[in-house]
């Protein structure tokens, strides 16, 4: 049986900043439960001696010379902004803390 509960889905939704409706939480709890049951089998073969692969092609050292390139104009930067003021993006009040 899966460990996916409505509380967990609610927590995950808050971590991922999606204001899920109660209906969505209910249906996702079921669906994710099934999905997780079917994908949990990865741990069967993922033994301690197997290294993890994060990049399919093992390359290293893609480095860039420290040379200034072309920048966007302020107008381009703000071209898709939902709201702007004084050359800056506007967001509504922040209650949380800076990290």
């Amino acid at each position: 049986m899966s460990e996916i509960t409505p509380e967990l889905v609610t927590h995950l939704a808050s971590l991922s900043r999606i204001d899920l409706s109660p209906d969505e939480i209910a249906s996702l709890t079921t669906e994710l439960g099934q999905i997780v049951d079917s994908i949990a089998k990865v741990s069967e073969v993922a033994t301690a001696d197997v290294p993890a692969t994060s990049h399919p092609i093992p390359l290293t050292n893609a480095l860039r010379a420290d040379v200034v390139g072309e920048t966007l104009t302020q107008e381009q930067v703000l071209q898709n902004a939902p709201e702007q003021q004084d050359g800056k993006f506007v967001v509504t009040a922040i209650l949380g803390e800076e990290q």
């Binding site: 995950l12 997780v36 990865v42 741990s43 073969v45 993922a46 197997v50 993890a52 692969t53």
Partner: peptide, 26 residues
């Protein structure tokens, strides 16, 4: 997104995301 958030979250990372990366090696 919810599934991926779950796979990466602390306590589940090794079992899910970490294991999946090992399967990739295999």
């Amino acid at each position: 997104i919810i599934l991926g958030t779950y796979a990466l979250s602390s306590g589940y990372y090794d079992a899910y995301y970490g294991s999946a990366q090992k399967v990739r090696t295999l």
